[in-house]
Design a binder for these strands. Structure first.
Lengths: 193, 193
DNA sequence: CGCGACGTTGATTTGCCTCAACGATTGTGG
DNA sequence: CCACAATCGTTGAGGCAAATCAACGTCGCG
């Protein structure tokens, strides 16, 4: 059940078998069917999740009901609303399954208890959040400097295994462009080759 | 010299006087005059800095030479290129003083040694990077969902003490719009009132 | 089968950019 | 201390990237 999680952890830190076991035992397994929500705007995000399989979108919806997708999460990705999780405020984000999926969830209380008990865990999450931070910085710069065409190409090149599973609507909501325009970009690219 | 830093730290964590003293002693004081660089693209970022006074811009410049500003840093802010600092790769960012400024710098080696020795320090930086992460997420969502007008208003409302010191060119490079358009937005707002 | 979600395409509109000109302000070297 | 350069802000004209609105075909699913 936790094999994928263990493998993931060992890619990032060194940790004893006992500690690894103890940490992984704190997780609860959960199946989520397509279109179901793991988190809805207004709720308190009390978990951090590790995706075993399937696909999720983490997004905000504005006054007009338009969705802005912060990121997609597939196998081996973590999902949570860091803001709500750490500040204990109600979340402004939604997390919804785009496919039938399986996740491992850990509660805030358990995670913090294990932070104290197993210092390697603190290191793991420090590394993960540094990686996220670097990725977000790059995305901001790219959003500021590149055209929609370039961002689309970058996205499908960088995440081919995610892009293949998504609709134009979802890709548009991630890139900040309309789905009609995504369609036009694709045509432009196809006719070029 | 390190009074501002000490005050800043105590706002975020609890720490003994001795540990606080030891940590602050690892910093070097440096004056930077306006337009000078603390970091240039291509260099390895070997420091993390705490701004005592003055103002910096952290930015990327693309092929065309256009600048994209990641953030501004004034009193009480940290400056570094997390990417280069943690991965040891050459930086893609520039850090330049917009005013005559004073900073406290700590080297990577010293910082990591103190991580080991003083666990509270690890906590401090975990808290700081969580805050940064949350801010970046919000910024991505706002860049995706809001018009230039709204983003401008948000910016000057959120950071009045920074905005007042900046030129339209710098604000534009942060918001991803031309400085001419910043000017037009300002006129629109002024004539409204 | 029929419905709803999606992709495509066209027509029109709009938000913002680019280029260019000019005045105001700041800074600097003689 | 003044003169000149550099930098900045403003404004206009024109253009382009991308949004919006609308129509239609297709596909998968209950």
């Amino acid at each position: 059940m936790t094999a994928a999680l263990k493998e993931h952890i060992l890619k990032h830190i060194q940790i004893s078998d006992e500690h690894l076991e103890e940490f992984c035992n704190a997780f609860t397994f959960q199946k989520i069917i397509k279109k179901e929500f793991l988190l809805k705007e207004g709720e308190h995000c009390k978990f951090e999740g590790f995706v075993i399989n399937g696909c999720f979108k983490v997004y905000h919806s504005d006054q007009k009901g338009t969705e802005q997708i912060l990121y997609f999460a597939i196998e081996d990705w973590w999902i949570t609303d860091v803001d709500s999780f750490t500040t204990l405020k109600p979340s402004q984000l939604n997390i919804q399954a785009l496919e039938n999926s399986e996740v491992l969830l850990i509660s805030k209380a358990d995670k913090e208890a294990l932070y104290q008990k197993i210092p390697e865990i603190e290191k793991l999450f420090r590394i993960m959040s540094q990686k996220t931070l670097i990725a977000l910085q790059r995305r901001i710069i790219e959003n500021l400097s590149k055209t929609a065409d370039q961002r689309y190409v970058d996205f499908i090149t960088k995440y081919p295994q995610i892009a293949g599973r998504l609709t134009n609507i979802q890709i548009g909501a991630y890139l900040g462009i309309s789905h009609e325009f995504v369609s036009r970009i694709r045509r432009k690219i196809v006719t070029k080759n």
